[in-house]
Structure formats: C-alpha cells, structure tokens
Design a protein around this nucleic acid. Structure first.
Length: 114
DNA sequence: CATGTGACGCCTG
DNA sequence: CCAGGCGCCACAT
C-alpha cells in the first residue's frame, strides 16, 4: 500500500528526531496536529522508509519502548532497544529511557510532508 | 456508510 | 505501583 498523506506527515516529523534522542508518540502527534497517539503508532508500524525514517526513536509517554516491527513485546523490541543504545540513548535500570534522552520538537512550525 | 483494531495515554480507584 | 475504563483517529474490511 502506498503511504497516505497522514502517514507521510508522520514520517516527515519522525525524520526530525536526531540520533541519540527519542520523542513520544503523543508528542509527535501533537506536533503534526493529531491527538491520537494510536494513529501515530499505526503509521510508524507501516514505515516503508526505515531506517531513513527513524521510527525506532519514537517511544511511549511513560518512557518505555513501545513497539517495533509490529510487535509490542519480544525480540523485536529488544532490537529497538539495542539500536537506541548504539545511538547513545540512555536507559535506566528499570529499562526505561532516561529523561535526558528525550527530544522536544521546537515550537516553530510543522514540517512539510515527505 | 458501519465496525473493528491498535507500536497510545490519561484519569480513576 | 497495578488495573480498568475510556477517549483518541486513521485505516482496512
């Protein structure tokens, strides 16, 4: 399936996240004007541009990993974690991303579609 | 057009 | 901290 306009907005925003940092589904959604974090996950789940579009840098609001490659638990999420660690994202003992690694979209203007 | 389904999140208790 | 409950909304059926 070709990406929908909504999906392209999600991907465009996702690209703005620098390596070594992460943002949340909710924050990315707010940035592009979507109040449903679930819809964001749905789009990232179908990301056809990985790793150019770094969907692994998007995590849950409670700073747990969220899903990866369609799975919310299991080996896929372990891979997601390894990717982030290699990029320099900091994790706590509880397995959550440390707050210092969070990245905020600047309050400028929304990105153009891909 | 109606319905089910999430890689979510917030608000209770 | 844990468990429900419910709002959210794009997308496939």
């Amino acid at each position: 399936m070709p990406p929908t306009p909504f999906q392209n907005r999600v991907y465009a925003a996702c690209r703005l996240i620098p390596a070594g940092r992460v943002c949340t589904y909710a924050a990315l959604g707010r940035w592009i004007g979507c109040r449903s974090p679930r819809a964001i996950g749905q789009a990232l789940k179908r990301n056809p541009y990985a790793p150019e579009v770094p969907c692994h840098r998007v995590i849950a609001s409670n700073r747990t990993l969220g899903g990866f490659n369609g799975a919310s638990t299991g080996p896929e999420t372990v891979r997601k974690r390894r990717l982030l660690q290699e990029e320099g994202v900091h994790f706590g003992e509880d397995g959550r991303v440390k707050s210092v690694s969070l990245w905020e979209f600047s309050l400028a203007k929304p990105p153009e579609p891909l």
